[in-house]
Design a binder for these strands. Sequence first.
DNA 1: GCCGTTTTCGGCCCGACTGTTTTCAGTCG
Length: 585
Amino acid sequence: MATLSNREIADTFETVADMLQIKGEIIHRVLSYRRAGEAIRELPRDLHMIASEGKLTEIPGIGDTLAAKITEMLETGKLEFYERLTKEIPPGLVAIMRINGVGPKKAKLFWEQLNITTIQELEAAAREGKLRDLAGMGAKSELKVIEGIEALSRQTGRFSLGIALPAAQKILDQLLTVPGAIEGAIAGSIRRGKPTIGDVDLLVASDDATPIMDKFVHMENVARILGHGPTKSSVELLNGLQVDVRVLEKARWGTALNYFTGSQAHNIHMRELALEKGYSLNEHAFSPVDKDKNIIEDAPKILCATEEEVYATVGLPWIPPEIREDSGEIEAAKAGTLPNLIVIGDMQADLHMHTTWSDGVLSVREMAEAAKRRGRKYIVITDHSRSLGIANGLTIERLLEQQKEVRMVDAMMAPDFRVFHGTEMDINADGGLDFPDEILAQLDFVIASLHVSLRQERPQIMQRLLTAISNPHVDMIGHPRAQYIPDREPVDADMDAVFEAAKKHGTVLEINANPRRLDLEAQYVRRAIELGIPLSINTDAHAEDHMDLMPYGILTARRGWAEAKNIINTWSVERFVEWTTSRGK
DNA sequence: GCCGTTTTCGGCCCGACTGTTTTCAGTCG
């Protein structure tokens, strides 16, 4: 039977939303499909499982109608409603809407007036000058379409947080050198710690926007100016990254930072709360409204210089940016049950790293000292195992040889700092583990990870993962979904079953802090915590500077509502030793 | 199409910028 993944169903709903919008459906119906698509995309559980429990309508944004459509897709592999729509609206128009500056109205215009249904046809028409005479179009709009198509072909999709965050900081630092710039912040999805970034949102407080905007659009790495207004400008950088800058007065910093941090869903919820309190909220201020929700012009507005004031005005405590997704954080804030999210200072240890014994660039001693400089109290050396030839994986003989060196370094650095010996053992393609139990029993901490044959079918992947999770010597699964951002999709794993097994065997699941991984992702972190599964945040460092990637792991954990108590490497070394010992080492 | 200590019907967040317009529609976030 045809089976669809959460992602394919989310894609279908979002495509349906676009098609309905081209049709001119009322926007709220369109948004329902779009919101449902987003909700499904972020779901930590398989829709099959939720459907079999009859709980589809418990997903926020899914009612009876959409639940029935999900069920239809799960059972038949397709959606009749979508099939019908494709006969009415050419699917190519959905792709045309991805061009910057082209929305549903223009897509429909090009289609109805010129019978254009693909990006290729649109580009040809634009180059022949056929678009400029259409109603509402002109020579400039025609040029924008061409530029938009060129930009689209350059685009490599979303950027990883590890690329976007440093780039954003660099630009912000430049803008803050402009005289009159008082304060700056990175807002948007970077501030919320999302693993992939669509565009960069920067905020600068100043009484004079002009010089800041000028500096911004004339930076040397700007490929194209997308907009240049008095308070807001946008550019596309040479690497394709889009950056937006807003300049505002310091007195409105709180509302602005809150608004531009998002998420959009969180903002909408905040504005609804504001209306309940008798105010219209925007990025500038709270404005008193009458009972028809019209702004009372001469009534004094409330300006907020800090985010704390914004939340206080709607009767809430400040909510950390990482959980502003309208996924329960506002309800938790109301109830006084916001989590006490983990911070970098809670981290006592790094349990996953590599040395020159396999594919790292520093010795055991050098890694230990690098970790100590960063305030860690203990580490585990976990080089690759024998089957991973490309990474110079350790044979049993070399592993035991390495253990002597680790013990020596540990003796040198103790008691202030401890170095333990472990492995990052491959879970082989045939489902076997790369070291026998009697060898694993001699190690302090055992990670098992998937590195090869990642495109296997779900039954093979699950057999491998469950073998590793249930082995009594395996303490942790490294980067459990084996994704690589943005190029490689995660393995096809049944995460419900992974969680069930991890819970049963007390096996730790890793939050790999490398920004190319960030695996587990936040929605799975949150689910694992709900189920009481121990987690760990590690850098997987292959060099000294990789140890500085820990904050990315912290961001991901915070997005998953993690507190220090959920993360085992916040433990003292004594507790860690006690725990590994209790696991039969 | 969703949702409900204001509602099972009637609501559903808000503004900046652009390009085409003579006062605003479309797009984006």
